[in-house]
Each structure stands twice: as C-alpha cells, then as structure tokens.
Design a protein around this nucleic acid. Structure first.
Length: 763
DNA sequence: TCGTCTTACACTTTTGAAAGGA
DNA sequence: ATCCTTTCAAAAGTGTAAGACG
C-alpha cells in the first residue's frame, strides 16, 4: 500500500472528504485534529515522535487495561495440531466451504467494559503453489496472484471484553472459496496454496471506531493448504472422524464406503427387488471406534511411529470439537519425532511499535479514485480501512516450537495494519473495467483509472534488507539470519515431518532470536508492552519467526501534512523501512529466511518471490479523518460499479513478513458511528449491510502516476477495500450498520460477516 | 494422458419456525 | 399472554465419485 504522500504527483485534485480526513489525520502531529476522539487510535499508532500526546480517556471511560495482557488461546489446538502434523488441507469450493477444524479461541486480558471487534483473515503463508505427489506436498511453482483480502468479522462484534472472555470464540462460519468472482464476501483463496489464518482483536473504543488497540494472533498450527479435493487420505480420514457432518462417511455411517458400494451394487443388480432398508448396516460394528457421534471425554491418543501417524481414541477415535479434547494428551505436547507440533505463536508487536514489514513493492501509488473509494460496501457503503493484507510470508516464518512451554496461548501484541498488497499484474488490477460492479471505476477517473504499476521482481531486494537498512539508519541493528536458511527444500514428504533444520529449533529460547532485532530496539519501545512478561506471554520470547522486528506493525507511512513526498523527513526518521525505491530499499542482501516450519507443510523454496515484498508502506490511520468529512455512503443494495465515496485513510497493518504475525486494524471514523448503548445489544440482529473497509491508498493503476514506482520482490499487491457483512446472527441487536449509521440495507449473508480488504470491490 | 476442478449425490447436523403445554 | 420445550422440515455442511476441463 502506498501513502499518498509517497506520490506527490498524484492528481488528487479537489480534496475530498476522505482525503481531508486523511490529511487531517496525516498531519495529526502537526495540526490539531478536528476530532481527537476519532483520531486517537491512529494517533496512538503513530510513532511517538510524530504524535501529540494521546488524548486522555474520557472521565466516564474505565481506565483502559494494559493491552499487553491480552492473550488468545486456540481452544482446539490439539485438533489443529493433529491436522497440522499430517498437513492440514482445507476444501475450497465455489459456493464456499467452511473450515474444519474450526477456529476456536479463547481470549483473555480484555477490558471487560471495552468493546472489541474480532476478525479473522487468512493470509498466504508463502509464495508457492503446491502439489501433492508421492504422498507429500511439493512446491510446484510460484503462487498465483494474490486475491482480494477479505476478513471475516465475528458475528458478535463488537462486543465487550467480558462477552468475549466468557465464551469460546468460534469462527466456524467462516467460508472459504476459490471463486475469484465471489460476491458473497467469503474469503477467497487459491487452491493448492498454503495459508495462515490470523485472528485480530480490535478495540472499539469511544464511538466504536476501529482505532483502539489492535492485537493479532497467529497460530501456526492452523496453517493449511487449500484444495478442491482432499489429496492426503489421512487428512480425509481425520476429517471424517472429526467432523460431525461427515459422520455418515465413517465406517459405521450410512454413507461409508461399504454402504455406498452396497447401495450401488444393489441398485445395479437388484434394485427392483431389494428394498432400500436392506442396507448392510450391521456390517458396521456399532462399537466401531470411529463412531464419534457422541463426543466422548476420552482423549485421543496421537502416536507417531516412524513415519506413520496414528491417532487412536480408546473409545471412538477423533472428535472434531475442542470440547472433545479436554486436556488432550496431545495438546501442546511436542511429538517425539522431530516433528514437534507447531505451537501457536503470537507476534509480540508493541502497540505503537509498528513497522512496515516491507516497503519495496509495497509502495504503490494511489489514485484519486482510490482515495475516494472508501467506506463503500456492496450496498454502496464503504468504510475506508486500510487493507491489511500481507505479502506471502516465507514458509519458514514459523519457527518450530517443540518446547512444551510453548502453548497455543499468546499474549497479544498490538499490531498495526498491514498494507494490503495485490499483484499489480493481477487481472483484477489489469482489468478493472471488466471487474465486478464494485470495481473502482469512478467516473471522475473513468477508464483512465490508474493501474498499479507492474513492479519488477527484485529477488535481491528483501524487505528484511530494507528493514535492516532502515534500522541501521535509525541507529538500530538487525542481524540477518544465516543465508543458508534461504535454502528450503522443495519437496516435503509428510509425514514424517522433516526435522527442523533450524540450528535453533526452539524459538522460545533466546537463542532463537539471535537474528531478530529485539522489539525493544525499536524506537517506539515506550509503547511496547512488556511482552516478555511471563504472565502475559506463554512465550516470553517471541519466536524469531514471529517476533521478527519486521513483524512489528508499522501503522503509518511517512506522514507529511501537505507534502506527500516520499522523502519526507518524518517518514525517513520515523519509519524504519523506507518506501520502495527509496534509499536503502534496494539492498542486495539476500532475503533472509526464517527457520523452517516444523510442520507437515514444506517450506517454500521460492526465493524469487520474496515474502511481503509487495507490501506497501503503511498508511495513516483512517481514524484521523474528521468524522464529518464522511459523506453518507451510497445505500444502494447493488453496489454500483464505482464505489468512490471518500476513502478513509487506511490504517497501516503490519506486513506479513516471514516469521511475522502482523495484526492491527484501521480505525473507523467515528463520524459514521453513533454511540452504542449496551441496551441495544440484543441477539438476533437483522442482516447487516455489507461494509467495505477500503483503503484509501489503493495502488496506482497507472504506473505513470507513480514516478517512483517502487520495486517489488513479489508482484505488487494493492490494498483493497474491506467489506464487512454483518452476520444477522450476531448476538447483538445493534448491528454494525447501526454503529456506523449505515442504511438498513441487508446482506444476504447468513453465515457471518466479511470484510473485503481488497482494493477492488466485491465482484 | 494427467492433474485439477466442478457438480451431483447421499448422508449428517444445524437452524428456525410451529405446535403444544405450563 | 408469556415462556419454555418439543417436534419437524428446511437449510446447510460433509466427503465421495463421476465427469468436465485445460
């Protein structure tokens, strides 16, 4: 993503409301924000040196609890680990497919009185495409162009911290699709790619704006490969035995292979004489251990012998629900096979210490249209939030965490918004005109809509290098990992999982951080929570792969009130990583690769595509936009082809650098949000209009608009609008549309809320 | 020919409305 | 009239297999 400041030549023309907002926010440090409350979050996210003291909390407001204590625990981690040991596969279909295992988490450390928004997004885990061959996943080639970043908003959002902490937070309604033209708002993924889900906790303070503390959680064991049909039979077996919906396919199920064959046989031979009730049910042992209709308390026993993994349950095998694994014997316990379970990891990102993961390739011009194309949803409503897509993280981003102490519970780290990247050469960007009606196509720009500049791959340039350079400029040091880490196997038979080649496989140990710049080393350390506090962080030491300084969110791009010059002194001084094309961004140092990820998934060996290389610089938070600056969004249910309501300046989001777990979310202008009386929160809320949280800093569609077209190690990814489709089943009667004063337009979604973080609207 | 994807299918669970009772 | 429970049908979620597609 690219801040407008980076491209002073952008024909912004008349300053739109959104732009004004952005500018106001942009220069928050220099000007008195018109709406401090709305800009608070953004301001707080800005580097201290650029920011005025954050406004004191309102008298009525409970003293905010230190955000450092927020922890999230993957409830069904044991199940996830079972899958990850084999190599989790997720079916994606055109109509959308739910995830299994489900993402179920428990959060703690929230302020019970504050409201939070929980989101789920799925980012590429690497830049490779895979193929299942010879009973193992092998890298087939480079990943396809990144798809629009969409986020699933938990239907209960926003809810109080008490609400979230008193229950298991399930994202089971999340649907994945491979339909790039999906209009349902489902999370679009490529098949045969590897992805990493992320959970975000966003504090909805004050006017419920999205600008409070942001916390991102990544559980490496939830990484998965997308498929249209299961490749690994063991995954199929595990799914059947774990998923209640697949009960029919169990050995004693009515749809098991034996039954199917029996039915087929009878249908062919004696269908006219044999009644259907002649199913050979008795052939299935009623006591079949696979019959997990009743989730028994017995813990499944997962044993790995040699290269084979066997999961046995004394009673009935696997159980899909986390409840089925209370105190699972396998949870959080490393497998004595050199294939330690992937322990959940969480990036410790200081609240303010937000650093753009990558600037190269991330720099993208933003069109006026883009600037105006915020706060539009499918129904014409778009909230301009910065997309926080992440570049392809290196496969080795996850350090092995064999140590038992590394559990799936992690303290949150406030993270910034990752600039969403979208390949400039992606059809969506190349063919804006033929895209969905949501495709930004403001008449004001018409066909001349600038297209994102094709950014050349520059394998030699890696964000890490840039970061290193920037750190150096900032008087900080960054030790790049050994170059040999760059060599990842292309073939990854699993199981057995390949032993971690990382010399320091235990990221929980300080030594694992040898090549990571301590977070404290960052200039904004005063905002950094005591991440190493044992009480708040099961992993006192953030694994290198996840705690990489680059992972630190860097909320905002170089901010300059009136002069969006990339060379802005503020930018250079406050931002550790320069925008692409800026000095220091083209270091030739090979991109370091984090230690391998000790799971069934092979580590990507594609160094030609640098993870996060495409991530643009961070953008000013939209929360800085004056509330009044927002014009009423279009209320048309059918999103017009051109959503160009003023965009809210997207908040920056940490780039998903190798070994990083970015988080954070852009704040929402309070102007569109009314107060949120708790009394209005009632279950059974109506459908909410889809919301599009759109980055106002979409990549320029026209390279000419970007005289400083940033280099890209990876096909540049543009930012995308965020679409929010409130789930009608939310626990609260007051849906987000009320919060944001949105029209009564409803969305057909019945399964959840989605944010489309792509720069283009939903097709 | 092969790999991948789509679709129909049968089965299951989930969901919500309707009915009935307290 | 309200609340709760039960019942039932529809919707939705599963993996499988066949066929389509490139």
């Amino acid at each position: 993503m690219l801040g407008v400041e980076m491209y002073p030549s952008l024909p912004l023309g008349h300053q739109r409301l959104g732009d004004c907002y952005y500018r106001d926010c942009d220069v928050a440090s220099a000007h008195v924000p018109l709406y401090p409350s709305s800009c608070d979050a953004a301001a707080r996210a800005l580097p201290p040196r650029l920011l005025p003291p954050p406004p004191a909390p309102a008298p009525h407001e409970a003293p905010p609890k230190p955000q450092d204590n927020i922890k999230m625990e993957l409830e069904n981690a044991s199940l996830w680990k079972q899958f990850s040991t084999i190599g989790t596969e997720m079916i994606i279909t055109k109509k959308g497919r739910r995830m299994f295992p489900q993402l179920r988490a428990k959060v703690s450390g929230l302020n019970p009185t504050l409201r939070y928004i929980l989101l789920l997004d799925i980012v590429p885990a690497d830049s490779s495409r895979y193929r299942f061959q010879d009973d193992s996943w092998q890298v087939l080639g480079g990943a396809e162009a990144r798809l629009p970043d969409r986020v699933f908003i938990h239907p209960d959002s926003p809810a109080t911290g008490e609400h979230w902490q008193n229950r298991t937070i399930s994202f089971h309604r999340t649907k994945l699709t491979n339909n790039t033209l999906d209009a349902q708002g489902y999370i679009i993924l490529h098949s045969l790619h590897r992805y990493q889900p992320r959970l975000h906790v966003i504090e909805a303070r004050d006017m419920l704006m999205w600008g409070g503390a942001r916390h991102s959680f990544t559980f490496p064991e939830t990484q998965f490969l997308t498929v249209t049909a299961y490749q690994n039979s063991r995954i199929t077996e595990l799914k059947i035995n774990s998923n209640p919906f697949a009960k029919g396919f169990r050995e004693n199920g009515m749809n098991c292979k034996r039954q199917r064959e029996t039915r087929q046989k009878k249908k062919v031979i004696t269908h006219q004489t044999e009644p259907m009730d002649d199913l050979d049910i008795e052939s299935c042992d009623p006591c079949d251990p696979c019959d997990s209709t009743e989730l028994l308390p017995q813990n499944p026993i997962l044993s790995i012998t040699g290269s084979s993994l066997s999961i046995t349950d004394p009673s009935c095998g696997f159980h899909g629900d986390a409840q089925a694994f209370p105190g699972s014997t396998v949870s959080d316990q490393p497998i004595n096979l050199g294939q330690a379970f992937i322990s959940s990891q969480m990036t410790q990102i200081p609240d303010i210490t937000e650093i753009p993961a990558s600037m190269d390739g991330g720099l993208q011009t933003i069109s006026q249209e883009d600037l105006n194309d915020s706060l539009i949803d499918r129904s014409g409503q778009m909230i301009d939030l910065q997309s926080f897509g992440t570049p392809f993280a290196d496969s080795s981003q996850f350090s092995s965490v064999p140590h038992p102490q590394c559990s799936s519970s992690y303290s949150s780290v406030t993270s910034s918004v990752t600039s969403s990247a979208y390949p400039s050469n992606h059809p969506a960007n190349q063919n804006q005109d033929v895209l969905s009606p949501h495709t930004p196509n403001n008449s004001s720009f018409g066909s001349s809509l600038p297209t994102p500049p094709f950014q050349t791959l520059q394998p030699s340039v890696h964000p890490m290098n840039q970061a290193q350079s920037e750190l150096s400029q900032m008087g900080l040091t960054y030790s790049a990992p050994p170059a040999d880490q760059n060599t990842a196997a292309t073939a990854f038979p699993f199981p057995p999982l390949q032993p971690q080649s990382d010399p320091d496989p235990d990221p929980c140990t300080p030594s694992s951080l040898h090549n990571s710049t301590p977070l404290s080393a960052f200039p904004f350390s005063e905002h950094q929570p005591p991440s190493s506090t044992p009480t708040s962080a099961p992993h006192p030491i953030t694994p290198q792969s996840m705690a990489n300084p680059l992972a630190t969110a860097f909320p905002f791009p170089p901010l300059s009130g009136s002069n969006p010059s990339p060379s802005n002194s503020h930018a250079s001084s406050a931002f550790p990583y320069p925008p692409a094309g800026s000095p220091g961004s083209d270091l030739a140092t090979p991109a370091p690769i984090q230690p391998g990820y000790p799971m069934a998934f092979p580590a990507s060996s594609f160094s030609h595509i640098q993870a996060s290389a495409s991530n643009p610089p961070q953008i000013p938070s939209s929360s800085m936009i004056p509330a009044q600056s927002f014009p009423p969004p279009p209320f048309s249910s059918s999103a017009p082809a051109h959503h160009h309501s003023p965009s809210l300046p997207p908040a920056s989001y940490p780039q998903y650098l190798p070994g990083t777990a970015p988080g954070g979310y852009p704040p929402v202008p309070s102007a569109e949000m009314g107060t949120f009386p708790s009394a209005q929160f009632n279950p059974g809320g109506p459908y909410l209009p889809e919301r599009v949280l759109h980055s106002s800093f979409l990549p320029s569609m026209d390279p000419s608009l970007s005289s400083t077209a940033p280099p890209s190690l990876y096909p540049s990814f543009s930012s995308y609008p965020l679409r929010l489709c409130q789930d009608p089943r939310t626990s609260y009667h007051i849906p987000l549309r009320h919060i944001y004063r949105q029209p009564q337009h409803t969305h057909a979604h019945t399964q959840g809320s989605y944010l489309d973080m792509s720069g283009r609207a939903v097709f």
